[in-house]
Amino acid sequence: MKVNQSEFIISAVRPEQYPEDGLPEIALAGRSNVGKSSLINRLISRKNLARTSSTPGKTQQLNYYKINQDLYFVDFPGYGYAKVSKEQRFAWGKMMEKYLLQRKELKLVMQMVDIRHEPSKDDKLMNEWLRHHGLPLVVVATKLDKIPKTRRPKHIKIIKEGLGLRSGDLFVAFSSEEGIGKEELWEIISRHAAVGKYAPEAPELEENNEA
């Protein structure tokens, strides 16, 4: 998918702040520092629309980015960061849960995991929760460029087995540095959001031949 326009819209903390234009939404969930911002920037071919941070847990809202006037990327707070208070983690969790279960514009969740490490307890819990509720899901294993090519199949296998993925489950190995997986991931996003070549055709209007 060719991105001609992208912009940050809002950092939302309450449902009344969410956009009301009905565009499809693609949520990005994962541990802090898993590379969500870098993935967004690579997908839209921009360097700093989504700000990367050296401080884990900095994202504390749902950050909305509008792409091509066609869809939104919704960047979630990173989960599993110990220095955030229990009260704050609980508040984030309730906000995310309400969004995931009630937001009708949500078309796909991208759960991002670091390919260098076996899935964490939080990764597994998130994956199980998303599956339990039947949410459309693709697992994106980030930082592929950090792994030597000869060891990549082994790491992919560890991720898939750790999350209990089956043969038909959607999975993309991704590198924000090299762009590996970009086209494959856009194909999945476009299909779920019904944009680009997957957009429904407008019905043809019948001509009025009455005199």
Rank of each mutant, 00 (worst) to 15 (best):
N4S: 13
F8G: 02
F8K: 02
S11D: 10
S11Y: 08
V13D: 12
R14N: 15
P15M: 04
E20V: 14
E20N: 15
D21V: 00
G22N: 11
G22P: 07
L23D: 02
A27H: 00
A27V: 08
A27K: 01
L28V: 01
A29P: 01
S32H: 05
V34S: 00
K36D: 06
S37H: 08
S37R: 05
S38A: 12
L39E: 00
L39Q: 04
N41T: 04
L43G: 02
I44M: 01
S45H: 15
S45I: 10
R46W: 02
N48Y: 09
N48P: 01
L49M: 03
A50D: 05
R51K: 12
P56N: 08
G57K: 01
T59D: 04
Q60T: 09
K66C: 11
K66Y: 01
D70A: 15
D70C: 10
L71F: 15
Y72L: 00
F73G: 03
F76I: 07
F76M: 12
F76Y: 09
F76D: 01
F76L: 07
G78W: 00
G80M: 07
A82Y: 08
S85Q: 10
K86N: 13
E87R: 12
Q88F: 11
R89L: 11
R89A: 12
R89N: 12
F90W: 13
A91T: 13
G93R: 10
K94E: 15
E97T: 14
Y99R: 02
Y99V: 00
L100F: 14
L106V: 07
L108S: 06
M110A: 08
M112S: 04
V113A: 02
D114C: 06
I115N: 03
I115M: 14
H117P: 06
H117R: 13
H117G: 09
H117S: 11
S120K: 12
D122G: 09
D123S: 04
K124C: 07
L125F: 11
L125S: 13
N127Q: 05
W129P: 03
L130V: 06
H132M: 14
G134I: 07
P136I: 07
L137K: 00
V140T: 02
A141S: 09
T142V: 06
L144S: 07
L144P: 00
L144G: 01
K146M: 10
I147P: 00
I147E: 00
P148E: 09
P148F: 10
K149W: 11
K149Y: 12
K154M: 14
K154R: 15
I159V: 15
K160Y: 02
E161N: 14
E161A: 13
G162L: 08
L163T: 01
R166F: 11
S167P: 14
G168N: 14
F171V: 09
A173N: 03
A173M: 04
S175N: 07
S175I: 01
E178M: 14
E178I: 05
G179H: 03
I180D: 05
G181P: 02
K182P: 06
E183N: 13
L185F: 07
L185W: 02
I188L: 13
S190N: 14
R191Q: 15
A194F: 14
V195P: 06
G196I: 02
G196N: 04
G196E: 05
Y198I: 08
A199H: 11
P200I: 04
A202D: 14
P203R: 07
P203G: 07
E206Y: 06
E206D: 10
E207M: 12
E207C: 10
